[in-house]
């Protein structure tokens, strides 16, 4: 994958108070909104799908010597979950799946990809879809397996695809009916 251009951090990221959960409700609501947007765009920019609550680069800003408390991190991610833009992986809330693109939109993207690569009525494995030649340079490249699987399942429900379980998870195949 070609190196991405540097991500431009928004103005608030270097203002220390934004790393403390604000007590005044109005202010906090604005704060949450800003962080939600930042997390989503950052992940989208770098093609990240999983946020490790304890280890996400955004949550600590060395240049101003500030980092978000665990409470704040969970709060912001929860806000994304409430909005349907993220999902917790596991009850301990240590990892969060980011849906900066919704599953439905991934599904649509897959359809276009299938059409562009003339894979209608063809069969590919899930693994090929995210690491194969046709994936290179597209948004599907290195797509998180969990998301890919969900999107394909959605297409299944719509009657546009059929999954076949192989001997291992990597072998799971898909046939597209478009």
């Amino acid at each position: 994958m070609a190196p991405k251009p540097a991500f431009e951090l928004p103005y608030f990221y270097n203002y220390r108070p934004y790393f403390t959960l604000q007590p005044v409700r109005d202010t906090r609501e604005k704060q949450i909104q800003l962080w939600k947007e930042l997390i989503l765009s950052f992940c989208k920019h770098y093609g990240m799908y999983i946020v490790d609550v304890d280890d996400f680069p955004l949550f600590a800003n060395k240049s101003i010597e500030r980092k978000l408390t665990n409470e704040a991190r969970e709060l912001f991610l929860n806000a994304l979950v409430m909005e349907g833009r993220a999902e917790w992986l596991g009850k301990d809330h240590r990892k969060c799946l980011l849906l900066w693109r919704r599953i439905e939109d991934w599904a649509d993207l897959i359809i276009s990809w299938v059409q562009e690569n003339a894979l209608e009525n063809g069969v590919v494995t899930l693994d090929e879809m995210r690491t194969g030649d046709e994936a290179r340079g597209t948004d599907l490249e290195n797509l998180e397996m969990i998301i890919l699987e969900r999107a394909v399942r959605l297409l299944e429900a719509r009657g546009k695809a059929q999954m076949f379980k192989g001997s291992s998870a990597d072998d799971t195949g898909v046939k597209f009916f478009i």
């Binding site: 220390r16 108070p17 790393f19 403390t20 005044v24 202010t27 010597e65």
Partner: peptide
């Protein structure tokens, strides 16, 4: 000042 949105708190200083 906090309530009016003119100030924000910062608890992160060492």
């Amino acid at each position: 000042l906090l309530r009016e949105g003119l100030a924000m708190i910062d608890d992160g200083d060492p």
